[in-house]
């Protein structure tokens, strides 16, 4: 479903704070895979998502989605295939528009919009049905302005919007990070429900090791722009969050090793 070949991305190229956000990323995600991505801060996990979504273009390499080359397509051109949920619950919805209007915008994802009024009773009752899946009693608040909802409610609606028109690929960028634990759990439940229900191909960036292990079918670990570990279904079942922590800790230590430090350590060990 997604094929990424040799993708590199550098920020602030040429300046002092040049950052390699992605280095030689090669990744293939099959259909119906639900991939969780964890990584240290600045490991490039959000950049990876942005590159897939088309919000950022890679410096080199190519990206294919559903068999079509997308490398140079802008985000709105990819929206037919890709839908996204952002970390910030305020980013995924238009605050001054009603729930119904927001859903309508999602319903038209990747389609041309004409000057006709299609938000009629029929459309609204369809939205009502969809909203009832959220279990948040939002189905009777279609004409409520988005900004009056809580962060969790908004994120749930954002999630619904992302899957309303079944996308080929669903990208979730730490979409529960800004929520309180209880709401986060609720949104995660919905995520699972939608991804399995719609048989979606999904890529979820998270910084919760627990989510990374418990959700999805595959886990990628990223560090310094590289995918350092790609853990498939069977292997994942044996993992604990501490394993991830240790893995990241190991990498951090590796970076600190100098020959003199090794010498010191050696002399204290044997």
């Amino acid at each position: 479903m997604i094929r990424i070949v040799g993708v590199n991305k550098k920020f602030n190229s040429g300046s002092l704070d040049e950052v390699y956000a992605l280095r030689e990323i090669n990744l293939e995600i099959r259909e119906h895979e639900f991939v969780t991505v964890i990584g240290t801060n600045g490991s490039g996990k959000s950049t990876l998502l942005n590159v897939i979504a088309g919000a950022i273009f890679p410096d080199s390499g190519s990206i294919e989605i559903g068999g079509k080359t997308m490398t140079r397509k802008r985000d709105y051109q990819r929206a037919r295939y890709v839908s996204r949920v952002f970390q910030n619950p305020f980013m995924g919805t238009a605050p001054d528009m009603t729930i119904a209007e927001n859903l309508l915008m999602a319903w038209f994802r990747g389609k041309k919009r004409y000057p006709v009024i299609s938000l009629n009773g029929k459309q609204k009752s369809f939205f009502r049905d969809q909203l009832s899946q959220l279990d948040m009693q939002l189905e009777n608040r279609l004409d409520t302005v988005m900004k009056t909802l809580s962060g969790g409610q908004r994120q749930a609606v954002t999630l619904l919007m992302a899957v309303l028109k079944t996308p080929d690929v669903l990208l979730l960028d730490e979409h529960t990070a800004a929520l309180d634990p209880k709401t986060a759990a609720q949104v995660i439940r919905l995520t699972q429900k939608f991804v399995t229900g719609h048989k979606l191909t999904a890529l979820m960036v998270t910084h919760s090791m627990k989510q990374a292990i418990e959700l999805g079918t595959r886990t990628l670990m990223m560090h310094h722009g590289r995918i350092i570990d790609d853990i498939c279904e069977e292997e994942r079942q044996k993992l604990t969050t501490d394993d991830f922590l240790n893995k990241f800790e190991d990498i951090r230590k590796q970076e600190k090793l100098t020959p003199s430090l090794i010498e010191t350590l050696k002399n204290q060990y044997v």
Partner: peptide, 27 residues
């Protein structure tokens, strides 16, 4: 009426949340 059409709504959303509407396939 124009601002209530699909096109008009999209226009309003563009102003209200450009990031979100771009994610939904709107330039």
């Amino acid at each position: 009426l124009f601002l209530k059409t699909d096109f008009g709504l999209t226009m309003r959303t563009t102003g209200n949340n450009p990031v979100m509407i771009a994610a939904h396939g709107v330039s």
